[in-house]
Amino acid sequence: MSSNLIVPVAADKPEYSNKLPYVFALGEDGIIVCIKSVLGLPLDRFDNIYFTVLRKHDDLFYIADSLRMQCKRLGLVNVKIVILDESTRDQVETVFMTIQQERISGSIYIKDADCYFESKEAIRNGVAIYPIEELEMLDPRDKSYVAVDDMYYITNIIEKSVIGHYISAGGYAFEDCDVFCKYYTSLRHYDRLYLSHIIYAMLLDKKTFRPFLVKNYKDWGSKRMLGFI
């Protein structure tokens, strides 16, 4: 069974019509933000790494070429840039379209492009978590939260409502992408989906998810929203 890392970076906003999305910009170390977001993961455990972008952004800013060149410079192998012709409604649809377009099978690990953490976990049903008390800053409206029981299983995951002292850190592992797609299809009638909705539906069906505690979490998205970068 193959193991696949998917980084969905196809968000579309009005300001992106004439401005490079910040996840494709260079950080202070000269590394493109969305690439740096995965460098704390055990990349050698993935058979394939996918960065999914919008064609309109690629046409304007030559994103695919920039990503390919930097991945080559960093020695990242098995990287593919997936280009979607049309905007998606949300991150979950972007992942689904990536799976369909590339005919991905096996396990998938979905990584948010606007944050960084270090973790050795790669495969199985799981969610990256980080303690609230260790955050530099927190906007409760910008996070999903995870409840963990005494046996170290996830019992709940929910958007924008604090239910424990762990946030979802932006890494989501599914051991079978066909199951992910089945749940996506069953929930697609909702206007906007989050990955937490997919996981919660699976929890209701008695599918188990483990938390994995990550280190050195950096939340660039929240810092940008609050004007710190």
Rank of each mutant, 00 (worst) to 15 (best):
I132T: 02
K143G: 03
R224W: 14
S144H: 07
P211D: 01
L226K: 12
V162Y: 06
A122Y: 15
V146R: 03
K56L: 00
V9T: 13
E102T: 10
V146E: 03
D112A: 08
S222D: 11
H165P: 00
S66Q: 13
A10H: 03
Y194S: 10
L193H: 00
C34F: 07
M69L: 14
R188F: 03
R224M: 13
I167N: 02
K56I: 14
I99K: 12
G30A: 14
H57M: 05
R73N: 14
F96I: 02
Y172T: 01
D85S: 06
E28C: 12
F180Q: 07
S186F: 10
Y217I: 06
D47N: 12
N216T: 01
G170P: 03
L74I: 07
D65T: 10
R45I: 08
E175L: 10
N18D: 15
I31W: 12
M225S: 14
I49W: 06
K72D: 13
I167T: 01
L5D: 08
T94N: 09
S196D: 02
G126V: 05
K207D: 01
R188M: 05
I110W: 05
D142N: 14
N156W: 09
D90A: 00
S3V: 10
P211Y: 01
I198N: 08
C177F: 06
T98N: 04
S168R: 06
K80C: 07
N18H: 13
I199K: 03
D112P: 03
H197K: 10
A64Y: 02
V7S: 11
